[in-house]
Design a protein around this nucleic acid. Structure first.
Lengths: 146, 146
DNA sequence: AGTTTGTACTACGTCACGTCGTACTACAAC
DNA sequence: GTTGTAGTACGACGTGACGTAGTACAAACT
């Protein structure tokens, strides 16, 4: 049996391509040609290489695509922030961390004070939403699961 | 040029081996034999396989080792929690997240309320340490860098 | 001296990724 | 309608990471 790290990770080029899609905007998306033209400014890369990467990203469901004439238009499946958060969460799950408080403490230890402020802001926002009748994405998911 | 995702990731078996080391304890550590005997209970695995994995973990500096007679005794280089936090942090860096608040918000969205409590506890602890004269590891690092 | 214990080094299969080439197809321009 | 020209689909190759292990060889017991 070979290896099989649960979730899909991003390679270097894959990340660069995602960057382009995000730069293009979630609703605009981009075609292979557009991404290729953008990347070509910085590096020497074949059109088909970009195509392959976009294709693999679609298979991993990190991007979606819609027909546009004969071509496909690709869209990021998630925002950069959501994808990042998801990866972070998966890391914690994969590592089988039981003492999450300790893990988070270590995480904060590596954080700048600006980041800690960000975290407090995020926390406050979650609290606020919990206080009002608004349903967070998480709570919605929880509810649907039951 | 092939790919090169900045930081070392753990494969499945590597993680299992780390689990054994952590189970053995950071100060006790374990020899190849010990780890092998433990793993053998659950799966059919060669002694040398364990050795190779431990060797690679050492090269990645995820474990350290000390001579003990002819054998090596291996120790986890970090706690599970520290390593997890480090990986999470690296994820955020790698993903080039500018809007950390949004990322953290998404992270919290995937969190259970127990986890949120953990986070608040961790945050309070950091605050407390900042308030007292105690120096956190981060602040120490910051200071040394300047 | 023979057996055991342990390491070092090499090796092989597979998968993920970066990287393309080629074959084939619609659609447009002549 | 024949010739280009996008575009895609599919396959392929090289390399590094990992899981997996064999072999060779040194040290340590018996």
């Amino acid at each position: 049996m070979p290896h099989s790290t649960s979730a899909p990770r991003l390679g270097d080029l894959e990340r660069v391509v995602m960057d382009r899609l995000w730069a293009a905007g979630a609703t605009e998306g981009a075609t292979v040609r557009e991404v290729h033209e953008a990347l070509e400014q910085d590096r020497d890369i074949a059109y088909t290489t970009v195509m392959t990467v976009l294709d693999r990203l679609a298979k991993k469901e990190l991007v979606t695509r819609e027909r546009e004439g004969r071509a496909w238009r690709y869209f990021p499946a998630d925002t950069r922030e959501a994808m990042t958060a998801q990866t972070m969460r998966r890391t914690m799950d994969d590592m089988d961390v039981t003492d999450r408080r300790a893990a988070l403490l270590h995480f904060l230890d590596g954080a700048s004070s600006a980041e800690i402020d960000d975290l407090k802001a995020a926390l406050a926002e979650v609290e606020a939403r919990a206080g009002s009748g608004e349903e967070t994405a998480r709570r919605l998911r929880d509810r649907l699961r039951r």
